[in-house]
Every structure is written in structure tokens, then in C-alpha cells.
């Protein structure tokens, strides 16, 4: 799987390298969008010292962790929720006759490394936040765990979005509401939202496990909604559960695949 992914990604990277100007513009575009996100945080903290009980460095930490996880998941699996395009164009048929997983082929299709720019940017924000926070060594190990869990959660959401399109072709926007919407929601401390939304993000769609619950653990802060402090340690379990659901949904989607006429 990894070998096939690397093979396809490398082939597409070489193909993209034939258009260097387009590559440069896409990279710059990605960085500008990411820069605007960060500018919003600066504007907020130019006017207030805290956001829903969290200081600037803490918000940087939460923002950096969520965006790093999302941008890496988007880089590697962001194409999966565009499977409806392959269904419509009939290119999924061509993928199904190859001795490789169609999931990997869809994910790696048209791979472009320019999105790595956003990951570097998010990683820098996370690093700056962390160095200013003075997190004790006994809890720092949770940071890579939460980023990896976050990648898995977002990748699973992309996959679920893709699986849905075997039923509802031409509805990638529905999937985007959950993936890109999830990335937006987790940019800020979840305590800015209504408690009902936060409960939904904890128990239904486990977005709270991307950066909020494990982040509270790293920061050593109590959960405003009163969940025990070890809830953050459940991030890998939440991520794996969602990934299993997504894998089953994808398989069901492939089995229900109807192909196109002719």
C-alpha cells in the first residue's frame, strides 16, 4: 500500500514539475490562505488577552496541532472525497482492474506536494506555541500522539466522505462540510462554542479528539464541560474507531459500485 502510494505520488509529482509556474502559484496561494488564518488569531489577541479562557500561546498550540493534522491528512488523503469525479468519468473502472487498492489509487491521484507548505506553516505555529508554553516533559509525548490521531481522524472523514459518494454521486460538498468544516471548527478552543456542539464533537463526530481533549491534557487544564482529564488519552482509540468505520463504509461503497454505462 505504502509502496504503491509512494510510486503514484512520485509519478504525479514529476508530472506536476513540468508546470513549475503553476506549482509555484499554488504553493504561494496555500501559504496566503494559511497566513490569513494566523492573521485572524493575531487580530483577536490584539483586542483581548484571552479567547474563551485561553491565552495566545495556548490558542497557537491548539491551532497549530489541528492545522498540522488536517493539512497532512489533506495532502495524503484529500483526494478521496473527490471519488465522485472518478465515478462520473469512469476512471474508477481503470483503477479497479489494477493490482492495487482503489483507495490508494484515488488518494494518490494527481498528488501535488505544494500543499506541504501549509503543513510547514502549521508546524511552525505549533512549535512556537509549544516553546513558549513550558509543557512538562511528562506530558509532551502526547503532542505527536495527538497530531497522528488527528491525521487519522481527518483521513477517516475524507474516506467517509468518499464512501458516501458511491450512494450520492455528485455530492462532494456534503463531504467537504465535515472535512473542511471540521478543520475550521478545531482551529479555536472548543470552549468558544455552545456546549451542545462540543458534546456532538466529542461523542458523535470525534473532532474533539483531534486537538481539544488531548490539548487540554498537554496544557494540564480541566475540561470546561467536566470530562475527566484522561479523556484526552483516548484520542488514538477514537481515531482508530472512526478509521474502522470509514474502512467498512469504503468497502461497502466499492461493493455497491455501479460503474457507468457502456
Amino acid at each position: 500500500m505504502i509502496r504503491t502510494y509512494a510510486l503514484l505520488a512520485w509519478t504525479w509529482t514529476r508530472a506536476a514539475a513540468q508546470y513549475p509556474l503553476s506549482f509555484a502559484l499554488m504553493t504561494v496561494g496555500g501559504l496566503v490562505v494559511g497566513g490569513l488564518d494566523i492573521a485572524v488569531i493575531w487580530v483577536i489577541f490584539a483586542n483581548t488577552d484571552e479567547l474563551a479562557g485561553f491565552g495566545l500561546t495556548e490558542v497557537m498550540f491548539l491551532y497549530g496541532a489541528s492545522q498540522l493534522a488536517f493539512s497532512l491528512a489533506d495532502l495524503l488523503f484529500g483526494n478521496v472525497d473527490r471519488v465522485s469525479r472518478h465515478i462520473g468519468a469512469g476512471t474508477l473502472d481503470a483503477m479497479l482492474i489494477r493490482p492495487a487498492s482503489p483507495f490508494v489509487q484515488v488518494a494518490a491521484d494527481q498528488f501535488t506536494p505544494h500543499r506541504i507548505g501549509r503543513s510547514i506553516q502549521a508546524g511552525a505555529v505549533l512549535a512556537v506555541g509549544l516553546t513558549r508554553l513550558d509543557v512538562p516533559l511528562g506530558r509532551v509525548w502526547m503532542v505527536p500522539v495527538m497530531v497522528v490521531s488527528g491525521i487519522v481522524i481527518f483521513a477517516a472523514l475524507f474516506t467517509l466522505g468518499g464512501a458516501v459518494q458511491f450512494l450520492l454521486t455528485a455530492a462532494p460538498e456534503v463531504a467537504n462540510a465535515f472535512t473542511y468544516g471540521g478543520a475550521m471548527l478545531t482551529q479555536y478552543p472548543l470552549s468558544v462554542y455552545d456546549a451542545r456542539i462540543v458534546r456532538g464533537m466529542t461523542f458523535a463526530l470525534p473532532l474533539a479528539f483531534v486537538n481539544w481533549q488531548p490539548g487540554l491534557y498537554v496544557l494540564g487544564r480541566p475540561d470546561p464541560l467536566g470530562l475527566p482529564s484522561w479523556t484526552g488519552l483516548l484520542s488514538p482509540a477514537a481515531a482508530l474507531t472512526l478509521a474502522a468505520v470509514a474502512a467498512l463504509a469504503w468497502r461497502a461503497g466499492i461493493r455497491r459500485y455501479r460503474s457507468t454505462g457502456s
Partner: peptide, 20 residues
């Protein structure tokens, strides 16, 4: 056994290419 079968069969769709 789609993946195993893929190694033993070749498929050509005249209507559309299976190439990139």
C-alpha cells in the same frame, strides 16, 4: 479476489483509456 485477478488478466476499454 480482484487484486489477485488483476495480475492474471489484461483489460482494454475501447471507449476510454486505462492509462494516465
Amino acid at each position: 479476489r480482484r487484486t489477485a485477478l488483476a495480475r492474471r488478466i489484461g483489460v482494454v476499454f475501447g471507449q476510454r483509456t486505462t492509462l494516465w
